[in-house]
Amino acid sequence: MQNIDKIIDKWNTDPDYVIEMMQDIQDELRHTPREVLEQITKRTKVPLARLYHIATFYKSFSLTLQGIHKIQVCTGTACHVKGAPNILDAFARELKIEIGETTEDGKYTLDEVRCLGCCSLAPVVMINDDVYGNFTTKKIKSLLEKYK
């Protein structure tokens, strides 16, 4: 919990910046669990209900632990037109999970994201911070090999 305090301090316990704090915590812990939200409440005096509203309103946050590698299949308009739904399905088949779920071994979380802004290279897939353009289902196996 020391790390959490450090993050809250970084934003000067400013209630305007709770969303920023929560993003840093999400990055650090791969989720924003209740204990953490309670700690933010204690330090910033922002009501727990509002933090819960934020955690469930914005897509960046999750209340449950996310996988080590976050796979985001872009389903923006250009990617949709160029076959993103099939790619998303193929990932789900390969990982044996549904969209939004995490594999049992905690390695991968599969999600869709509406537009990474690389539309000219559609369809696009992002793993962690790396973006892969002109993606095809054929590339899935070798890509997962890279992120073990």
């Binding site: 389903t75 923006g76 250009a78 949709h80 537009c115 802004g117 690389c118 539309c119």
Partner: peptide, 12 residues
């Protein structure tokens, strides 16, 4: 906060 899917002018 360029959110429109299919738009990336501001990003660039």
């Amino acid at each position: 906060d360029e959110g429109d899917p299919g738009a990336f002018m501001d990003r660039n």
